[in-house]
Nucleic acid binder design. Structure first.
Lengths: 255, 255
DNA sequence: CGATGACTTGAATAGTTTCAAAGCGAGTGG
DNA sequence: CCACTCGCTTTGAAACTATTCAAGTCATCG
């Protein structure tokens, strides 16, 4: 379930003639200069990470965990904004002021925490750290654009497929028979919030996917995908997700 | 609520009567080091800005215009991802690889274009440019989080109200009687794409708003909002939008 | 003018949510 | 070890919102 395992999954499952020249995209390596500074936070499932320490802005670097950035609008409207995986970064200034927002750990793991000022100085001193941060932010912007397009344009079924693809690509590991396994770090209602869908509706759709044999769930927190390509074919967002997670650098010709 | 609602308008149109303590937030000042470099692009309405020049990554800095970042998924599913206003930045790496994406000018204006490498060097040399870029990116992240929450959690009516609030706060000017005027830089179908709503449905809702007297449209591209606070009260996303655009710095206590 | 494209509106339909009830699982105390 | 309870999940039927499709209106431009 490590991110190393997931990258090999990508290479094994989707060989779209991805040239090796641009293989450095994923997983993003965290520079040593970053790893050696910062406070290590050990996360528990469900643990909120405080967005400011002593009134100061913070930066988080995900070393080994899955995090959820969640926004709550007045009226108990909760929206999962983004999922953060190893290599991702989060700056407290990403949070809209005035709204209620939380950064939640979904799995046990390790996260590095910095004061923003300190991180900023570190980046000024170490160009590798700077380049890492900029790349990570850009990648997350791109992921959020896909998430937005999925929620805005796709129906419930396609949204769920997109979400499963995201998890499979980021945290999945190959299993027997070309299957893919991953842990489901979100509860049903958390998934529903992330997808902008009603929890009841979501449950129905998952039953449908299970019924069609695309999904196997030995228990509620473990998911087997029988045929990842068949699953991918069910969502228009899959190609974008796969080229973002799959190691291919953006090709200027495609822009 | 009133001081938040009016402060951005004040900044744009009147001279700075707002308190100086948090005045640096909006509008974001583009440092001279940035303004003096880069290629100035004069935009026309509808003009696409090429996301790469000679195969190289680019950075855009919006000086005076409104831009739309639009993503298209297979099957002609177009989603407006974000609107860019003066002071905003766009890096071509924000675009998910493999998907079709466009950066469109919605108004005539001026945009600065850089090769990413050159911009990166500029930022390394000028800390003010670096701080500006980081702040602009963070602010846009926050705005996109609100946009996502609006699309994921609100009904069609509330989404439209949220969109109108966004435009009013960013590009609106006070008119007589405490009214607010702004140009509508998007067509109906573009608004619909931005909000993840059907264009027919959108038209119905605008008629409803006009019927309730909240909106007055002398022509299709000009909008008067009779009572901004009344409009704001119709969307749960308004407080977040207003504190983001209204000049208040994020208060750590709120996080 | 007459034509074209953008916008509006109505009626039928499809998809999603709501509400309520029942099912399952993990943890607790008898 | 079992019954109990609590929270999360599943499922059904009714209600509702939003979409689709088609027809009609408006505006702009040659």
């Amino acid at each position: 379930m490590s991110h190393l395992a997931s990258s090999s999954l990508n290479n094994l499952t989707f060989s779209h003639g991805v040239d090796a020249s641009s293989s450095a995209e994923w997983p993003v390596l965290i520079p040593n200069g970053v790893l050696s500074h910062g406070t290590t936070v050990h996360t528990r499932r469900g643990q909120p990470l405080p967005l400011s320490i002593a009134g100061e802005e913070t930066v988080f670097v995900v070393r080994m965990a899955t995090l959820l950035f969640r926004l709550t609008l007045p009226g108990d409207l909760r929206q999962g904004v983004s999922l953060l995986y190893p290599g991702d970064v989060f700056r407290s200034a990403f949070v809209p002021p005035g709204g209620e927002a939380r950064l939640l750990a979904l799995t046990p793991g390790e996260v590095l925490r910095f004061r923003f000022d300190a991180f900023s100085e570190l980046m000024a001193a170490a160009p590798a750290a700077r380049a890492y941060f900029d790349l990570a932010v850009a990648r997350q912007m791109a992921r959020q654009a896909i998430h937005l397009a999925a929620i805005g344009q796709l129906d419930c079924f396609q949204r769920l497929v997109t979400f499963l693809m995201e998890l499979a690509l980021h945290t999945g590991a190959p299993a027997s028979d070309g299957r893919v396994v991953f842990e489901m770090p979100l509860s049903r209602s958390e998934i529903a919030e992330y997808l902008g869908v009603n929890a009841d509706t979501l449950s129905r759709i998952m039953s449908r996917l299970r019924g069609e044999g695309l999904l196997i769930q030995p228990d509620r927190h473990t998911v087997y995908v029988s045929d990842l390509e068949a699953l991918a074919a069910l969502s228009p967002a899959s190609p974008a997700l796969m080229s973002l997670c799959g190691g291919a650098a953006p090709e200027p010709a495609d822009l």
